[in-house]
Simulated assay, not measured.
Amino acid sequence: MKTLKRNLVVGLFSIIAVYLFFLSRSGWDPMHAWNRAFADVSLLLLLLTLVIGPLGKINRFFISYRPWRREMGIWSALTAIIHVYILFDGWFQWEPIRTIAGFDQATGQLFFDSGFTLANLLGLIGLVYVFLLTLISNNKSVKLLGKPAWDYVQQKSSILYILVVAHTAYFLFFYRIGNANWFQKPFLVFVIILFLIQWGVFFLTVLRNRAKARKALVNQD
């Protein structure tokens, strides 16, 4: 029941957030507005799953929210899949070549852009990765793989984060569609905050371990 409730809460949050993100781009072509809305919410949920763990090491208050990471990861995957579906249906028109070659909607011409190609390849690799992580985000997979192996795979979500950030950064700053994207500054803020928190936790852990080591030496004396 707890898992169901968490899914309902995160799902409701995701749906509302997607709609608000869509409304924030009322001047865009609807296809691109929906596409970006699902992509941004997917990224937001991924960031939340990655930040909860480090925050729990800073303050015990956040430890109680660790179980929510699984549901956030699942909904991050779902919104990412919908994001890709919208692109294939509305922009790529189910022609795989358009994922690695730019497409001018006005003229119908294909053109090669190395940045566009690389960004889309990173996005597709990330999609496969998030799909696999979602498939094993259940108790049966934990039993099948074993807890150490399952933890190892889940902890590699940092690879997914790098793929997603690189993919998103290109389309936010180097590939413009219509009006400027307001999500540029929030994106930078989120990335910097996560970076500072992760390294802050690293140094905090080092200091705590050194303090424990000194205390152990004092107790031995």
Rank of each mutant, 00 (worst) to 15 (best):
M1E: 04
L4Q: 02
R6D: 09
N7S: 07
R25E: 12
S26W: 11
P30V: 09
H32I: 13
A33T: 09
W34S: 06
W34V: 00
A39G: 14
L48K: 02
L50I: 05
V51C: 01
G53S: 13
L55K: 08
R60S: 15
F61L: 12
S64G: 09
Y65P: 03
R70E: 12
E71P: 03
I74H: 01
A80T: 13
I82T: 13
H83V: 07
V84F: 15
Y85T: 10
I86G: 07
I86R: 02
D89M: 05
F92V: 02
W94D: 01
P96F: 05
I97L: 05
T99A: 14
I100K: 00
G102M: 07
F103K: 10
F103N: 02
D104V: 08
A106I: 10
T117Y: 11
L121Y: 03
L121V: 15
L121I: 15
L122A: 04
G123V: 07
L124S: 09
I125K: 03
G126T: 04
F131C: 08
T134W: 12
I136V: 08
N138G: 04
N139T: 07
N139D: 10
K143F: 02
L145D: 00
A149Y: 11
Y152N: 03
K156A: 12
S157D: 08
V164C: 02
A166M: 15
A169N: 06
Y170N: 04
F173L: 13
Y175L: 13
Y175S: 04
I177A: 09
I177D: 05
N179W: 08
A180Q: 12
W182G: 10
W182Q: 12
F183A: 14
K185F: 14
P186A: 00
F187H: 01
F187A: 00
F187S: 00
V191G: 03
I192D: 04
R208P: 01
N209W: 02
R210D: 10
K212E: 13
N219T: 09
